[in-house]
Simulated assay, not measured.
Amino acid sequence: MKFPFLAQRLFNTPLAITPGKAEVIMAALAERMGIAQMQRSVSMMDDDDYDYTGPGDNPRTGYDVVAGTAIVPVAGTLVQKLGTLRPYSGMTGYDGIRQNFLTALADPKVKAIVLDVDSPGGEVAGCFDLVDTIYKARGTKPVRAILNEAAYSAAYAIASAADSIYVPRTGGTGSIGVIWMHMDWSKALDAAGFKVTFVTYGDSKADGHPEIELSPEAYARFKAQIDSMGELFVETVARNRDIPASQVRATQAATYMGAAGVSQGLADGVMAPDAAFRALLADIN
C-alpha cells in the first residue's frame, strides 16, 4: 500500500525538500490515516504491497534521445531507491537517475545530456553520491540542467552538478538545506488508551520513535547530524557552482524565482526550457 511507504520515506529521516512540499505530504497522510492506521503502517513497512515495478516500454532505457541529446528526467519527489528508470507515481529514484546518466554517458549515439528537472527535492540518502557521480563526469560530454520549472533542495543539488543551469522566468532554484521531522504520536496514543513500552539495549536505541516524545538530548544529537548534512550540501553546491561556501550558506535555504537565482550564482541564465534545449543543440552541432 502506498501510504505506509510514504510515511516511511517522510518521517524520522533527513530530507532535502522544500518545507511546503513536506507539509502537503503530511497533510495528505493526516487526512487519510488515523493514529490506529499509522500504527498499522509501521508494522507493515517491511512487508507492504507497494508496486515498485512501474511502467516502461524499454526496461533498459530510461531516457529519450532527441537530436543526439539524452533527456534524463528528474521529476517529482526524489527517493533513494525506486526500482524504475523513469519517474513513477510522482517520484524519481536516484538509482534510476544514476543508471540513466551512466548509460547515456557511455552511449556513442549521445552527444550531450540534459537533466530535465522539475522537483521539490526529496531524500538526503543517496543524493550526494549521485551528485558526485555527475560532477566527476564533467568534461566527458556536455551536461546541462534545464529546469521545467523548478529545482529545489535535493533536485538543486543534482542540477548544480551539471555544466550549466537554465531556469525559466517563473521557475525556481535554491532551498539549499536539510529538514528532519519527528512525528510524536504519544498524546494520541494516550488518548486512545494505548501505552507503548520499549525494552532496549542502549540508552539511545529508542530515540526518534514516534511513540515517545523527543528528549532534549536526542534533539541535540539529531540537530548535529542535520547541521553536518547541511554543511555537506553547502560545500557541494559551492564546489559545483564555483562560488564561496559563505555565499551559499547565506541563502539560508531560501528559494529564488528566475533571474533572482541567477543573481545568487545558482543558475547561469533565464531561458524557457525549449529555448534552452535549442541553444544546447546549437552548441553541440
Rank of each mutant, 00 (worst) to 15 (best):
L6W: 06
L6Y: 03
A7E: 14
R9N: 12
L10C: 06
P14A: 03
I17H: 07
I17M: 15
K21C: 09
I25Q: 06
M26R: 13
A27W: 02
A27E: 14
G34P: 15
D46N: 13
D49N: 11
D49M: 09
D57Q: 05
R60M: 11
Y63T: 11
T69C: 07
A70H: 02
I71M: 13
T77F: 15
L78N: 07
T84M: 06
T84A: 11
T84P: 14
R86P: 07
R86S: 12
P87Q: 08
Y88P: 00
G90I: 13
G93S: 04
G93T: 02
D95K: 09
Q99M: 10
L105C: 05
K109L: 13
V110Y: 03
K111A: 13
V114N: 01
V117H: 05
E123C: 10
F128I: 01
D129H: 02
T133H: 00
Y135W: 15
K136L: 11
R138C: 04
T140Y: 05
K141T: 08
P142R: 14
V143F: 08
A151Y: 02
Y152Q: 10
Y156A: 00
S160V: 05
S164F: 00
V167Y: 02
I176S: 10
D184Q: 08
W185V: 04
W185A: 07
W185H: 11
S186P: 09
K187Y: 06
K195A: 13
G202R: 00
G208Y: 01
H209D: 12
P210M: 01
P216S: 07
A224S: 10
S228D: 13
E231D: 15
D242Y: 04
D242C: 12
P244D: 04
A253N: 14
A253W: 06
T255Y: 03
M257S: 10
A259I: 04
G265E: 03
L266N: 00
V270G: 08
A272H: 01
A272R: 03
A272N: 11
A282V: 09
A282H: 11
N285H: 12
